[in-house]
């Protein structure tokens, strides 16, 4: 073998090159990282799927799902498990009431470079088949960011919904991880406490989201006046809401 290599280095190089290519090809076929497009063959209503799978800098898998025609772009997948060429993931964020429906994909690489398997939802199962259509473009949730002193602190306001007044107390601070968040207490007929888990502070515009209740407050922050002039919304319901920095608190 080695003699032949010595006799014919050009051929050996070609063989090695071809072997390398073949290895790379095999890796590409079996590596689930990428953009996968296809269909779950739900009877009478095929479900189009675009699944992006990739590893982060630490080598952990991340994924997102786009459902063309269903209004879903870049929904975070849950329970993502990748073992060699087997992919398991949940799509709860892609369907209203997803936790109850338990939509899931269980897929395996086929020899022809297709990811094929089963889509399940609400106890039903349908075959699913996806082909690789390009490099992954995983939509990652926006990273939390710190809030400024102008926003941190205690704010109070009032809104009316359905003729009923609600008193709002909002407390915002940077957490141990350095990102903004806080607590929202709404007092109406009863008292509701929500965790504000997403805070986006732009140049003037502020968005505060309590994801668990789909409750959003947004508006313009006038730091000098100590006012957030905006609105609350919860699904289709919205009402004007002006928040004032609580007396005695000053933006530093």
């Amino acid at each position: 073998m080695s003699a032949s290599v010595h006799r014919c280095p050009g051929v050996a190089a070609l063989v090695l090159f071809a072997t390398g290519l073949a290895c790379a090809g095999a890796r590409a076929a079996s590596d689930p990282a990428g953009r996968w497009e296809g269909v779950a063959d739900v009877p009478g209503q095929p479900l189009r799927l675009v699944i992006d799978l990739d590893r982060d800098a630490q080598g952990r898998w991340a994924g997102s799902a786009t459902l063309p025609g269903r209004g879903v772009k870049g929904a975070v997948v849950d329970g993502l498990a990748v073992a060699a060429c087997d992919v398991r993931l949940g799509l709860a964020a892609a369907f209203p009431g997803g936790d109850a429906l338990q939509p899931k994909l269980a897929l395996t690489c086929r020899g022809d470079g297709v990811l094929a398997g089963t889509f399940t939802l609400g106890g039903q199962a349908a075959p699913a088949s996806l082909h690789r259509s390009g490099p992954a473009q995983v939509d990652r949730p926006p990273a939390g960011r710190p809030i400024t002193a102008a926003l941190a602190g205690r704010w109070t306001g009032r809104y009316e919904l359905g003729g009923l007044p609600r008193e709002v107390t909002l407390t915002l601070a940077n957490g141990a991880d350095g990102t903004g968040g806080g607590e929202l207490v709404i007092v109406g007929k009863r008292t509701t406490t929500l965790q504000v888990d997403q805070v986006t502070q732009g140049r003037e515009f502020v968005t505060l989201r309590a994801s668990a209740a789909n409750f959003v407050i947004e508006g313009r922050l006038a730091a000098q006046e100590g006012v957030i002039d905006g609105a609350m919304s919860q699904g289709p319901y919205e009402a004007p809401l002006v928040l004032h920095r609580q007396a005695g608190e000053k933006a530093s």
Partner: peptide, 29 residues
């Protein structure tokens, strides 16, 4: 050359800015 999938029907006509195409989708984005 490429396709870019969104979650909804696209009736928005794309515009150009700084090497990017900008458009809306019925998925709300």
């Amino acid at each position: 050359r490429w396709t870019f999938p969104t979650g909804g029907r696209i009736v928005s006509s794309a515009v150009w800015h700084d090497g990017a195409v900008l458009f809306g989708s019925d998925d709300g984005n």
